[in-house]
Simulated scan of single mutants.
Amino acid sequence: MNNKTIICMLFVLAFVISIGFAGRTPTCTSVVGVKNGDSCFGIAQAFQLSSGFFEYINPNLNCNKLFVGEWICVDGI
C-alpha cells in the first residue's frame, strides 16, 4: 500500500467513527476533579483520550473557564 492509500483509509475511518458519535447522548462512567493548573488538553492526554471523544463525553464543558473542583468526564459510552 502506498502513502496516499493509507491516508485515504485513515480519513474514511475517522469519518465513520465521527458519524457513530453523531446524535448520541453520552453516558459518563468515570470523572476526575479539576486541579489547579489543569487544562482540557492535559486531562485528555493524561487519560489517553482523543480530542473528539473528550468533547463527546463532555458536551457542555467550556475549556476556557475550567475551575478547581469541577468534575470532568474521562470515560464514557
Rank of each mutant, 00 (worst) to 15 (best):
Thr27Ala: 09
Asn58Thr: 10
Tyr56Pro: 02
Met9Ala: 15
Val68Ala: 08
Val68Pro: 05
Cys28Tyr: 03
Glu70Phe: 04
Tyr56Glu: 07
Pro59Trp: 12
Leu66Gly: 03
Ala44His: 01
Ile7Lys: 11
Ile77Glu: 14
Gly42Ile: 05
Val34Gln: 04
Asn58Phe: 06
Asn36Glu: 15
Ile77Thr: 14
Cys8His: 11
Thr29Gly: 11
Asn58Asp: 09
Cys40Ser: 12
Thr25Leu: 07
Ile72Arg: 01
Lys65Leu: 12
Phe67Ser: 13
Ser50Pro: 09
Gly52Ser: 14
Gly33Tyr: 13
Val31Leu: 05
Ser50Tyr: 09
Met9Trp: 06
Ile7Glu: 12
Phe54Leu: 04
Ile57Lys: 00
Val16Arg: 04
Cys63Pro: 02
Val34Asp: 03
Thr27Leu: 10
Ile19Val: 14
Pro26Phe: 01
Phe11Cys: 10
Ser50Phe: 04
Gly33Ala: 15
Leu10Glu: 08
Gly20Val: 09
Ser51Arg: 14
Val31Trp: 10
Phe54Ala: 03
Gly20Pro: 00
Ser18Phe: 07
Leu61Ile: 13
Thr27Lys: 14
Cys73Gly: 04
Leu49Cys: 06
Gly52Cys: 07
Glu70Ser: 05
Met1Asn: 06
Leu66Pro: 03
Ile72Cys: 03
Ser39Gly: 10
Phe53Arg: 04
Thr5Asn: 03
Val68Asn: 12
Asn64Thr: 13
Ile17His: 02
Gly69Val: 09
Val32Phe: 04
Val12Cys: 06
Asn36Ala: 14
Phe15His: 08
Phe67Glu: 12
Cys63His: 05
Gly20His: 10
Ile72Pro: 01
Val12Ser: 01
Ala22Thr: 10
Val31Gln: 11
Cys28Gln: 01
Leu66Phe: 10
Asn64Gln: 13
Phe11Trp: 07
Thr27Pro: 00
Leu66His: 08
Asn3Leu: 14
Gly52Phe: 13
Ala22His: 13
Gly69Leu: 06
Tyr56Trp: 15
Leu61Thr: 07
Val34Thr: 03
Thr25Met: 07
Val32Ile: 15
Glu55Tyr: 09
Phe67Lys: 13
Val68Lys: 11
Phe54His: 02
Val68Cys: 05
Ile19Glu: 08
Cys63Phe: 05
Glu55Ala: 14
Ala46Asp: 15
Pro59Ala: 08
Ala46Leu: 10
Phe21Trp: 10
Gly76Met: 07
Tyr56Met: 07
Asn62Pro: 05
Ile72Glu: 01
Asn36Phe: 12
Gly52Glu: 14
Leu10His: 02
Gly23Phe: 03
Phe21Arg: 03
Asp38Met: 08
Val16Lys: 03
Phe41Glu: 15
Gly23Leu: 02
Asp75Gln: 14
Ile43Trp: 02
Arg24His: 13
Asn64Leu: 13
Gly42Gln: 05
Phe21Met: 09
Val34Trp: 02
Ser51Gly: 11
Glu70Leu: 11
Phe11Ile: 15
Gly33Trp: 00
Gln45Trp: 08
Ile6Met: 06
Val16Met: 11
Phe67Val: 13
Val31Asn: 09
Ile19Asn: 06
Leu49Val: 08
Phe41Ser: 15
Cys8Glu: 14
Asn58Gln: 07
Tyr56Arg: 04
Gly69Cys: 06
Gly23Trp: 02
Cys40His: 02
Leu66Asp: 07
Val12Thr: 11
Gly33Cys: 05
Asn64Ser: 14
Phe15Ile: 14
Asn64Ala: 12
Thr5Met: 00
Pro26Gln: 01
Asp75Pro: 00
